[in-house]
Simulated assay, not measured.
Amino acid sequence: MKKLLTPFEKGTLKFKNHLVMAPMTRSRAINNLPNELMATYYAQRSGAGLIITEGTSPSPEGLGYPRIPGIYSDAQIQGWKKVTDAVHHNQSKIFLQLMHTGRIAHIANLPDGLQPVSPSGIKAAGEIYTDSLGMQEHSVPQELSLEGINKIINDFVTASKNAVSAGFDGIELHGANGYLLEQFLNPNVNIREDQYGGNYINRSRLTIEIARAVAEAIGKDKVGIRFSPFSQLSDQKPYDEAEVHNTYAHLSIELNKIGIAYIHLLSSPDITEKTYQTIRDAFSNILIFSSGLTPETAEKRLQDSTADLVAFGRSFLSNPDFVKRIENNRSLNDVDYNTLYTPGETGYTDYPADSYIN
């Protein structure tokens, strides 16, 4: 049997297989509330040993995009309970990804009176969709004060506690794809002159402080983080290769000291083997590898121990029974890119499948 399909166990974490469903924004949370349709979607895909949810805001200020869920209100906690119950019914585990979009936002997607925030007041290039105004340029963010940074940390802690109350097995901090935590890491976006800006140690400070505070609040075995070294998504302009390497080497060492459960690495064609190997060597817990995998290349990474778990996004998106398709060597459904972020069932819960659960 393929290692992909065999049970996984390390420390306190036990999954029915080595397959992870990667986090994917789907924009079905009307009024930012998780709902029955979302519960159906995740239940369909609970052949995965571990599901990581779509990016979920820890606070109203972090919503950024239209129709993404939050985890800061009682109603949201109750909505997410429907999801966790459905996934646990099929003996899968589920982590909530906490995503603060920072400057990748528009005020039309935020509650009235709120403005996007970022380490510095540098507007992101490009446009973002809003339900009320269509495509718009990103809003100019407000530079976070030290008081604002402390609030961000507290928001993540509260959101993590809320996630546990909603039945999640843990949380994943979104430190990738150009959102708030990565905005602090990138010297082209973070031009602060205080303890959260300047050298890579200072720019890494917020990520480490949030990880430590959340681990203390809910347990280090319930905390993971996602990184995308060398990524240029969301107007993350490239910076010195050695500086990137030092940043992620430092983060891996410090997160290993905290003892969080995993690092989820979103691979990039530009990531150097040196940086990858440094993360692998510095971090002794679980390494999840994601992006561009096939069942065959994923199996190879498990066999040669360059990854402990492997994550798939689009394959799970369009194939609710993806695990069964691997097991039976069956072809995959194509993704309907026109319905990735539209409301409703179409392109969400209506992909064909012979059987949903492995």
Results as ranks from 00 to 15, higher is better:
Lys3Leu: 15
Phe8Gly: 07
Leu13Pro: 04
Lys14Ile: 12
Ala22His: 02
Ala22Gln: 07
Arg26Cys: 12
Ala29Thr: 08
Asn31Ser: 08
Leu33Ser: 06
Pro34His: 10
Asn35Phe: 14
Glu36Tyr: 11
Gly49Phe: 13
Gly49Cys: 13
Leu50Gln: 09
Glu54Leu: 07
Pro60Trp: 12
Gly64Ser: 07
Ile68Leu: 12
Pro69Glu: 04
Gln76Pro: 02
Ile77Cys: 03
Gln78Gly: 02
His89Ile: 02
His89Ser: 08
Ser92Lys: 13
Lys93Thr: 02
Gln97Pro: 02
Gln97Asn: 06
Gln97Ile: 04
Leu98Val: 05
His100Ala: 05
His100Trp: 12
His100Ile: 11
Ala105Met: 10
Leu110Lys: 01
Pro111Trp: 04
Pro116His: 11
Gly121Glu: 05
Ile122Phe: 01
Ala124Pro: 02
Ala125Cys: 01
Ala125Val: 01
Ile128Trp: 01
Met135Ile: 10
Met135Ala: 09
His138Cys: 07
Ser145Tyr: 01
Lys151Phe: 14
Lys151Leu: 15
Ile152Thr: 10
Asn154Met: 07
Asn154Gly: 02
Asp155Thr: 14
Ala159Leu: 10
Ser160Leu: 12
Lys161His: 08
Val164Glu: 14
Ala166Leu: 08
Gly167Pro: 13
Phe168His: 09
Ile171Arg: 01
Ile171Leu: 06
Asn177Thr: 07
Asn177Pro: 01
Asn186Tyr: 00
Asn186Pro: 02
Asn186Gly: 00
Asn188Trp: 00
Asn188Thr: 00
Asn190Val: 01
Ile191Asp: 00
Arg205Cys: 12
Leu206Met: 08
Ile210His: 00
Ala213Gln: 10
Lys222Asp: 07
Phe227Ala: 03
Lys237Trp: 00
Tyr239Asn: 02
Val244His: 12
Thr247Arg: 03
His250Trp: 11
Ser252Trp: 05
Ile258Leu: 01
Ile260Lys: 00
Ala261Ile: 03
Leu265Asp: 02
Asp270Lys: 15
Glu273Trp: 09
Glu273Arg: 14
Ile279Trp: 04
Asp281Arg: 11
Phe283Cys: 05
Ile286His: 08
Pro295Gln: 05
Arg301His: 15
Ala307Trp: 01
Val310Arg: 09
Ala311Phe: 13
Ser315His: 15
Ser315Gly: 04
Ser315Arg: 13
Ser318Tyr: 08
Ser318Cys: 15
Pro320Gln: 06
Val323Gly: 10
Ile326Leu: 13
Leu332Ser: 14
Thr339Ile: 03
Thr342Arg: 15
